[in-house]
Amino acid sequence: MKLLTHNMLTSSVIKGVTKGFPLKIVASKVEVREVDYNEPFIIKTLSKVDWPALHQAANEVGYGEDLPIELGEDFQKDETLLRKIHNALLQVDIIEGELVCPESGRKFPISNGIPNMLLSEHEVSS
């Protein structure tokens, strides 16, 4: 699971949970796998990324040191920063671990890189 994917996941469909975002990451195995860098794609993708959630997630898995707490206005011109963001969004891969709902504590396993967000019917709010 890439952090770009994590940036979109919530546990909000669980009964009683209001936001369920961002899910806390507890990682036991993380890999970094090279992905082609494409600057326009990263800039376009960033327009929809929840930055605080990405920053927090990157820190939780040990790859957040180089990321600023806030994304400044000139980030589009800063290739060094964009490459670090590329790394955090697309190259860092959580292979084993779990996602934890910040409100209910419900855990979602990540196994073989695949987060399992399946819920049983009684957990889902109608």
Binding site: M1, K2, L4, T5, N7, M8, L9, T10, S12, V13, G20, F21, R33, E34, V35, K48, D50, L90, D93, G113, I114, P115, N116, M117, L118, L119, V124, S125
Partner: peptide, 23 residues
Amino acid sequence: HTVDLLAADVRHLANPLNCHLHK
């Protein structure tokens, strides 16, 4: 290495509560 997989019920994804996935 650029395809991520997610185990989830597609029927839940359109739910407005899942707004972080939308668009």
